[in-house]
Design a protein around this nucleic acid. Sequence first.
DNA 1: GTATTCCACGCACACGTGTGCGATACCTGA
DNA 2: TCAGGTATCGCACACGTGTGCGTGGAATAC
Lengths: 353, 353
Amino acid sequence: MPALDQLGDPGGGHRIPRITSIKDIARLARVSHSTVSRALHDSPQVSAETAARIRRIAEKAGYRASAAARSLVMGHSRTIGVVVTNIADPFVAGVVSGIEDMAEQHGYSVFLANSNAEPEREVRVVRSFEERRVDGIIVTSSRVGALYVPLMERLYIPVVLLNNQHPSEFAHSVLIDNVEASFQATRHLIQLGHRRIAYLGDRFGYQSDTERRAGYRRAMEEAGLKCDPALAVHGDGMPEGAAQAMAQLLALPKRPTAVFCYNDMSALGAMRQIRAHRLKIPDDISVAGFDDLYISQYLDPPLTTVRQPMRQMGRMAMETLLHIFDGPYSTHNLRVEGQLIVRQSTARPKENR
Amino acid sequence: MPALDQLGDPGGGHRIPRITSIKDIARLARVSHSTVSRALHDSPQVSAETAARIRRIAEKAGYRASAAARSLVMGHSRTIGVVVTNIADPFVAGVVSGIEDMAEQHGYSVFLANSNAEPEREVRVVRSFEERRVDGIIVTSSRVGALYVPLMERLYIPVVLLNNQHPSEFAHSVLIDNVEASFQATRHLIQLGHRRIAYLGDRFGYQSDTERRAGYRRAMEEAGLKCDPALAVHGDGMPEGAAQAMAQLLALPKRPTAVFCYNDMSALGAMRQIRAHRLKIPDDISVAGFDDLYISQYLDPPLTTVRQPMRQMGRMAMETLLHIFDGPYSTHNLRVEGQLIVRQSTARPKENR
DNA sequence: GTATTCCACGCACACGTGTGCGATACCTGA
DNA sequence: TCAGGTATCGCACACGTGTGCGTGGAATAC
């Protein structure tokens, strides 16, 4: 049982003697721990030879300075907290990937926490972040829980919201121009010749859903088309809810010839429902989404959608925090543009061919 | 500029006076900081009334004990590190979701880090985890970088590998029974009547790819079918590489009637390539995958695949760490079963109908 | 030879928390 | 009234790191 041996004898074999402290290095180098600290920080207060010698010893011993002790005296942890509703959501994963990327580049580590949209859990997560003394928090979720606003207001930690509700109540945010982007998407459908265009949204009351619906309306009205209220339905931002909403649309006496969905996941559910009714996409019904998930280009047919630069938005959120950290106080409200990606899930309606 | 005011006057308004230490609470309660510490830990050494009073004051002041200071004296950080190749991979995201879930339940926070399969970055990530004094590390990636093994060997932090290479060189792992699962999947294709079955793998040399190919071979041989080497091709675990590999298969003089893919992402690319050749799935070619990603049920046709319990595997990896933390040293090698999910992307070959 | 300057390093404190042990006050019983 | 016991709390140290300031020694200038 070599494993047992290694544990029983930490210094044995080729292993390093467990975790070493700065004092251990000092003893090995026959200097004070202050000198070790300065040597590892390239301080001019120690001679070049001594510094080199200390660094060599520290390297050999596998010394790693304790971030906990450092953050205690320095007053910052070089750590940020990211709270998401669900990391398994591909959009969220893309954003987190961008955040982590930028954070790592600047020496920050990221705590990841799922809220699962459960209010109690949100509270626990924020509390945990406070105890960890994170330097900043990024919140990515389709909505901000009811408990959040009062929770955040008591906080002395900068918070950046990403595609979130209540942007006005917080200083910092990164969000996509939902109105403009869905205006473009809807106009694309109109220009193809569609007249009965449906909007398949997220749950009622979510900020981004409201905005995307607004862009849809604006495009319809500018084209002189009336917005049939029966053509605006609510899903849940996931395939299952969208499939049910799509069923409502298909049960209409005059069904739409095109559907603009809140996001690609919703489009996925809508498409399945359409196929279940033995209708063809885009021949019978055109479908457009929002997000441009990685998989959307591989669907059959490839999905027309609005590209959200997920990774970039994540990077921007982290950059915002970095600015807040080293600059004087200021507010950042970054707005990015969506980009319409036309693929094969949208086409001219049948009657116009 | 209320925002500026709030910063300039931390105690002003309704805000709490920034971060308070245990000594501040002690002063407010007119006791020593020791008593505060004990009161917040329900120590029998402080009277019930005093404890209640202190807790009330601490709550009102929004006091949060510093995890850094605590971990310094306690010797553990209640923190784990998770290193992944890419969080944007849906399989990885599912695993991480399970890890975080179990971790949160037990009061642990998780550091997430992408390695992007870059060796230098892997080194930086592990170094960062060491400095943060994480109590354990979970590694989820399709391969372990060349630098990893020596890196990990010097480590005094328990490491759990999830679906990873080098399982024998580490004490702890959670992995799916690749051989058995892909044996089942291949046998399913054989039972449908297929004879020319291709295996579209990941990059050469990856542990899980090797194992899945082995299961494929075993099923073929048990059925008395010869394994045409031309029918075993390599992709890259992503749609793009798989599409190219699929093109090779379709260019064969006698193309396969079924393809078993390394994972669902590969299946996605394979399916697109098949459609590009104006062939029907499953009429002309059956396609099976591995993972059962959330989206796989929504593809057209819905994908036959092997379900990997991603979230559960993540939870198991975290549970393994928890056992290591509070139990005596022991090795854990958990093996989970895949489950074949038959959908509409596989059917009997044309000639057999 | 002496005074001055500068370089290199150590001492000591601070950060915030947990805990062993000693000290004080109160209570009980005879 | 006093000894003994117990309940309650504070003192002091430890964890590992960064840094202001003091100090000793060597080098330099006169």
